[in-house]
Structure formats: structure tokens, C-alpha cells
Nucleic acid binder design. Structure first.
Lengths: 159, 159
DNA sequence: TATTGTTATACTCTATAACTATA
DNA sequence: TATAGTTATAGAGTATAACAATA
């Protein structure tokens, strides 16, 4: 095959969006195995559990914003967790459209069993990095995320 | 809510697997909009196109390995691209189980139209990073990927 | 027997939208 | 009118496995 003008070829293994997608899938599988296989939680269910474990009590929309899920995903995950006896829903007397969601003792116990395993896997991943890169990572992720949000905005306003 | 022992809580916004998953989704949406909305390609189709655009001619299993897709995804993407007249399949006389896949002129033209747009979006993302972080990123991604592969292996061998 | 590639199936995820009940 | 949450639906992705053809 004749090589093409390098400006007009993407070297996939070096293309950052591709690399990030593959890495995220891989990590999601490796870390997700903790809550998926051992505790039969889907990823949205785990995120809802994590949001409530961290914050104690939230409304559905707060969870959606906090966990980067849409409201249907939250709704289904909440229903599944309630089914398992992991959370309760109470009407908010101040605004009865809201449901106040909180973990039951059973839900908190589940959360507490998962957290150390998930943190251990994160630590294992980050241990591969020299200190300087480990410090740079959160900064890089934040910068890329801001920039990606701008790109998303471009699509919506100028189709 | 009583705060819990910090060793037993995950702060989701700082949890790297979560941050990476959210970022990858966002970038996938932003960059994927190029080939999805404007050129009606799914992500697997785009990856197959990118593999063939970079390498010229490949068998299905090579594409699968190169593009981090499984063989069914490749099979379906290849069928869709052939349907659109973007690639051809020829029997390999040396091993007739293989199909030799290559882009048609139409497929190459499509590839050439997408590449500059995708590269521009990548550049836009990376422009947000200071030079040092931009240099660190490929190194970090590679290290995390090696490590995630080890984690994946752990799950399979020690369930 | 093992490998390439296709097909079948089922489950999850995503996106859109319609609907309710409250405000 | 607008918001919180649920339900319905269809499209895409993913995973497992069975299968045909070839090696």
C-alpha cells in the first residue's frame, strides 16, 4: 500500500479519542467486575449507590447531575436498588415532586463492602505511574473534560 | 449525615475510573458526532474504516485486534460498509478462510473527508493542555492500559 | 482439532418522547 | 408553564454460543 500524506491519515494507536475510549472500556471492565460479578450491580446502580454512599440523601435529579447519568437511568437504577432493599424513597414535604432517596442499612453495608475493593483497584492502576504523572492526571482529565464540553456545545449550536 | 471514615468512602468526582469513563463518553460523543451525524457511521464502522484507511488491506481478525473490536462487531461493520460500497471482500487464495478487505475509491474518499475533521477535534482537545501535560498523556495512557490488562487477567484467572 | 468468519439470541445502554403529579 | 420522576419504545452495543467452511 502506498503511504498517504501524513496529514490525511490517522494513526489509530496514537489517536487520543480512540486511546481514551479503549482505556475507559478496559478499566470499566476491570473495575466494574468488582460490583458487577461479585455484587450483581450494573454500572448505573453502582453509581447511584456511590452517590448516596457519599452524600447520604439526595433527590433523583441531584443524583443524575452528580453521577453523569440521565434521569431514566437513575430512575431504573433506583427501582432496582429499592427492589433489593438497598434504598428507601420518601416524599419531600417541601416539594412533593421530589423523592428523598437514602440507603438502608443493607444498602450501606453493600456500599461499605464494595468501596475498599474499588479503591484498591484504583490504587493498583495508579501505582503504575511515576509520582509526577500521577499528580498530572487529575489536572489533565479536568482540562480535557472542559474542552470536550465546549466541543459538545459546538455541535448543538452549529449543526 | 454523619461523615464516614474517609478510607471507606469514595469521592466519586475524584475516583479515576469514574472520571475516565465520563470523559471518554463525552469525547466519544463530541468526536463521534463527526462520523455519526455527518457521515452516518457507527463507531465500529468508523474504526474499521480507520483501520483500512491506515493499513490498506487487512483480514477481519487483524482489524479486530487493531481496532479493539470483537469479531462480531467487525463482521457487522464490514457488512454495513460493503452495503454502502465502501469496501470489497476478496478470498485469500493462500487461506480461503480469510477475507481480504480493502476500501473502494468511495471508501477512501469517505475516509479522507473524515480524517481532517477528526484530527482537528483531537487538536482542539489537546490544545487545552500545557506542553508538559500533552507530552505526559500518551505515556500515562499506555501505563494505565498495561495495568488495566493485568487487572483484567486477575479476574479471569482468580474468580 | 483449531481457526475465520457468520448468524442467533438476549441483555444492557442510549435517546426521544409521552405522560403524571406537582409547582 | 416549567420541573421531577416514570414509563414506553426503538436503536445501538455487548456477550455467549452455535455454526459453516477451511486449515
Amino acid at each position: 500500500m502506498a503511504p498517504v500524506d501524513p496529514e490525511h491519515v490517522i494513526r489509530l494507536q496514537h489517536f487520543v479519542p480512540y486511546r481514551l475510549a479503549v482505556l475507559a472500556e478496559q478499566i470499566s471492565r476491570a473495575v466494574g467486575a468488582v460490583y458487577a460479578e461479585r455484587f450483581s450491580l450494573t454500572r448505573p446502580e453502582w453509581r447511584v449507590l456511590a452517590a448516596l454512599g457519599e452524600h447520604g440523601e439526595m433527590a433523583g435529579t441531584d443524583i443524575a447531575r452528580f453521577s453523569a447519568l440521565d434521569k431514566m437511568a437513575v430512575s431504573r437504577a433506583v427501582a432496582a436498588l429499592q427492589e433489593r432493599g438497598c434504598l428507601t424513597r420518601h416524599d419531600d414535604p417541601r416539594d412533593r415532586r421530589h423523592k428523598r432517596l437514602r440507603l438502608t442499612p443493607r444498602g450501606r453495608a453493600l456500599y461499605r463492602r464494595i468501596v475498599p475493593l474499588a479503591l484498591a483497584r484504583e490504587r493498583f492502576l495508579l501505582d503504575a505511574l511515576p509520582a509526577q504523572d500521577r499528580a498530572a492526571l487529575p489536572r489533565i482529565l479536568a482540562a480535557l473534560q472542559r474542552r470536550a464540553a465546549e466541543l459538545d456545545g459546538l455541535d448543538e449550536t452549529a449543526p
